[in-house]
Design a protein around this nucleic acid. Structure first.
Lengths: 245, 245
DNA sequence: GAGTGGTCTAGACCACAGA
DNA sequence: CTGTGGTCTAGACCACTCG
């Protein structure tokens, strides 16, 4: 009918979710019912569901119906998490573990380690590196993919070419070995997920991920690690704090 | 045909744009032609164009055809930009001006000032504030909306209840008045644009914006400003740097 | 089997730009 | 006027879930 019916329908349903008319976990009416309610075809409702799903608000499933899945985002404190005390809190093996435990979520990570050449888009492009890949879960939902590239010399000295890096994670081991990072830089972009990312994070092609690329520098200015983190934007908020200079 | 034709088509066209088969500014074939090339209906091509447009890669226009519009993102250096020297570089009136000039872009801002009550989602919720709204352009393209909330007492002392705040912007005036911010916190989320944001930034309902909320604290721990910035994700990259603690 | 959402088609009508 | 993209429809067929 009206050319703006799509936007109106999306706005209406979104408001009903965010104001609590539909509670998280509740079932939404079937697409044909909503089509009748709004006086449009099922195609239009299906398209509206597509956008709401891409925002992480709903989860339509074939055969099972559509449920509300809104979850408040996980807050990632980028700077304080680099403090050794934060990484080692609660006997955690790194900042991710410590952070999720504080939020009442159960963290789990799968780590694989191998050697290779750092990819072109990193500060270590072309160098021989030890690559640590982490697949991270919160309450068994996949929430982050992180790939860490460490120059071979640094990795061997800090003994981080193995899966378990002990209390506090790799930065604690680097510090123990005299390669403690002195300066960090993070760059954030947002894009659609690549195929492998979408498969692991269970994302659709029209959803969005943060790509956070952190480069860690030693006191002498050498790059001791580049870490590329992929996170669905609807699951995470990013937080930074600093003193005025 | 195949159920995955949509993703394949999107991936194919995206690759042709990013590898340079279609240069920025070039015209893409009309939707009916691409429908024939891929052996699908125009609806499917139209949907693929919708996703590529939402990524900021192409700009389809009624009557005029579809052109490639990929632009590298503007890098926003969140921390160094708070240094007074950076804000006042090149005779600029704040960090935004200085940053865009360095990138060879022409900045322009429209500012309006009024009084009101700070909205609920800010640290100043409910307080009487001076509200400064900025609409920012790069080469006359809208790129950012920023709304700054300043407690009335601070705003009057720093004389930032007027449109022009002089060399270095409001933080320089606050420092002059003894309200210089001592600590900053920024929280980043990503969501779809609200109607007013979409209108100004010329965004579609399925595109995404960063919402960067910066809170500035005085040396005594009081909030002297909350600034909510809205930026299309495909136009901006966010950068943070800090020393290990 | 009945009902769900996933995907695609063919076609309609529209607004708009440009020759 | 022709051709462009914007939007929506009606319907098809499918994969899937659940009683």
């Amino acid at each position: 009918m009206e050319p703006e019916s799509f936007s109106l329908i999306v706005a209406t349903i979104r408001r009903e979710i965010l104001t609590g008319s539909y509670q998280p976990g509740a079932a939404l009416p079937p697409e044909p019912d909503l089509a009748a309610r709004f006086g449009v075809s099922r195609s239009t409702i299906n398209r509206a569901f597509g956008l709401l799903r891409s925002e992480g608000l709903i989860d339509p499933q074939q055969g099972r119906g559509t449920t509300v899945t809104y979850r408040p985002p996980i807050i990632r404190h980028a700077i304080s998490r680099q403090y050794r005390s934060a990484r080692e809190a609660d006997n955690s093996h790194g900042a991710f573990d410590a952070e999720l435990r504080r939020l009442g979520l159960t963290p789990r990570s799968e780590v694989t380690v191998d050697r290779g050449i750092a990819p072109a888009e990193t500060t270590l492009a072309g160098q021989q590196v030890v690559t640590r890949r982490r697949r991270m879960f919160a309450d068994e939902h996949p929430v982050q993919l992180a790939t860490s590239y460490i120059p071979v010399a640094v990795a061997l000295a800090a003994k981080v070419d193995q899966v378990d890096t002990g209390l506090g994670g790799i930065y604690s081991r680097m510090a123990d070995a005299g390669y403690g990072p002195a300066r960090f830089a993070e760059i954030i972009i947002v894009r659609t997920p690549e195929d492998a990312e979408a498969r692991f994070l269970r994302l659709d092609p029209d959803q969005r991920v943060y790509v956070v690329t952190r480069t860690a520098y030693s006191a002498t200015g050498d790059v001791v690690e580049v870490n590329v983190m992929i996170m669905p934007v609807h699951r995470w908020a990013l937080s930074y704090e600093w003193q005025a200079g």
